[in-house]
Nucleic acid binder design. Structure first.
Lengths: 244, 244
DNA sequence: GGAGCCCTTTGATCCACGTCAATACGATTT
DNA sequence: AAATCGTATTGACGTGGATCAAAGGGCTCC
């Protein structure tokens, strides 16, 4: 039976028009005819195994990538070896926007688990978005959203204490899982304590201690990478109730 | 004599095609005909006095702004009053990109001195960049540059010590002044120690102490807001020579 | 299904930066 | 030229998170 399944079925299944992520991704706000045009643009898909690079800092920039399955981290590395995780990306999110400015990528994108991305050749995206107003606008929104997100991280790194940072991180993850149809209160983190720490500007021991404290206070149940949020308002209170 | 100067002269003088900032700004890479089209788009200019807002968080988004004269800071404010400076902007740089994502601005833009901006209605910019490929591309580069810049700040906030942050800040300012034809080694900071501190995730006292230390070590001469860099390689060494 | 290794947790100690406080300086106003 | 106020410097002290260290737990890969 398997051999009679036509290849085209697979093709259709992976097209934007059939993708269950289209409400989160580049096709958002496009009408069906426009999504079909986008389908033609998204030439290929690429599978990336856990711990492998989608691109590296210095690679020449040719395409942006929409995450179809799995998740990634992006990081920047200094000459002296220090590195900073600049973000964690989930399905439907777009990677590679950093490369537009100099035609070279300025960070590394690494899969946190076996993953798959849609390759969107950037020249053709610019071409199509000159024709399709809604695509142009959605693309601009995605770039702007990235800027706003980065400002939030700057706020977090610049003026929050360790437990506030972790609370903000957990609430953000919860919200993003929710947007993807998963439980808001129970999820599996794909990154290590060290990676969370790098993202939050903390050492892994501090992250671990903050998790333990949250657990002691009944805010979350932590079992390694499996997180259950028990008291969302409590976490939010940690964020706002800055007693200084 | 004054009364005979025709208004049109003023108009021409402030057009993109005549602007000495065009190599840094939106017109970069456009041919003369295309710059003329951009001239028509940039409808009005707006003067902003020192300490006044160009826009506020929550304001509806209608335009982006190119700085013609002066300088700005952008900041984000939390409910509990804490604020984080997310950037300092100089002539030729573009403000307001944060507003695209939600049609509302998500930060405040405040003039550090009496300043002037070109108002670029965003709907018309999108329209023109559908017709003018080089404008579209330059706009995308400007947005991407903002993302890359933010990643640099995240690196700074997440994994550098106080003196490294200040060294990075001074080198960055120097480089931006240079790009505008000013001295690389001698300049006037328009922001207070408190604002620098907020941007760098430090308290104002720590910024002040770091300045004093740099002065003691002969790296810079500091006199209030007037800075003279005496040893650029020395500052760069502070950045890279992370003995940890 | 076992071995090895990475990841996580927890404790003890240290230090960079924050906090509190006082003074000094400079720009602006009168 | 004096008064005022925001800004900057400097000192003394406290603390949150880093560092160092050790042990336990759970994946991953044979």
């Amino acid at each position: 039976m398997k051999s009679v399944v036509p290849v085209t079925v697979v093709e259709i299944k992976t097209a934007c028009s059939q993708c269950n992520l289209r409400e989160l991704c580049l096709p958002f706000g496009l009408d069906p005819g426009e999504v079909n045009q986008l389908d033609e643009l998204v030439g290929s898909r690429r599978k990336i195994k856990r711990q492998q690079h989608l691109y590296r800092s210095g690679d020449s920039f040719e395409a942006i990538y929409a995450i179809r399955a799995g998740s990634f981290k992006t990081d920047v590395i200094l000459e002296d070896g220090r590195d900073q995780v600049t973000g964690f990306q989930m399905t439907g999110e777009v990677l590679g926007l950093d490369g537009i400015s100099t035609e070279q990528h300025s960070c590394n994108a690494i899969a946190l688990e076996d993953s798959e991305v849609c390759v969107i050749p950037f020249g053709r995206l610019e071409e199509l978005s000159r024709q399709v107003e809604s695509l142009q606008h959605q693309f601009h929104k995605i770039m702007s959203r990235e800027i706003v997100r980065d400002h939030g991280v700057m706020m977090l790194l610049g003026s929050m204490r360790a437990e506030e940072r972790l609370a903000a991180f957990l609430l953000n993850m919860s919200q993003r899982f929710t947007a993807r149809g998963f439980s808001p209160s129970e999820f599996h983190l794909r990154m290590t304590r060290d990676e969370i720490g790098s993202y939050l500007g903390l050492k892994l021991e501090t992250v671990s201690r903050a998790f333990s404290r949250f657990q002691d206070e009944g805010l979350v149940a932590v079992q390694q990478k499996h997180i259950r949020i028990l008291d969302t308002p409590g976490l939010k209170r940690i964020l706002n109730h800055h007693t200084a």
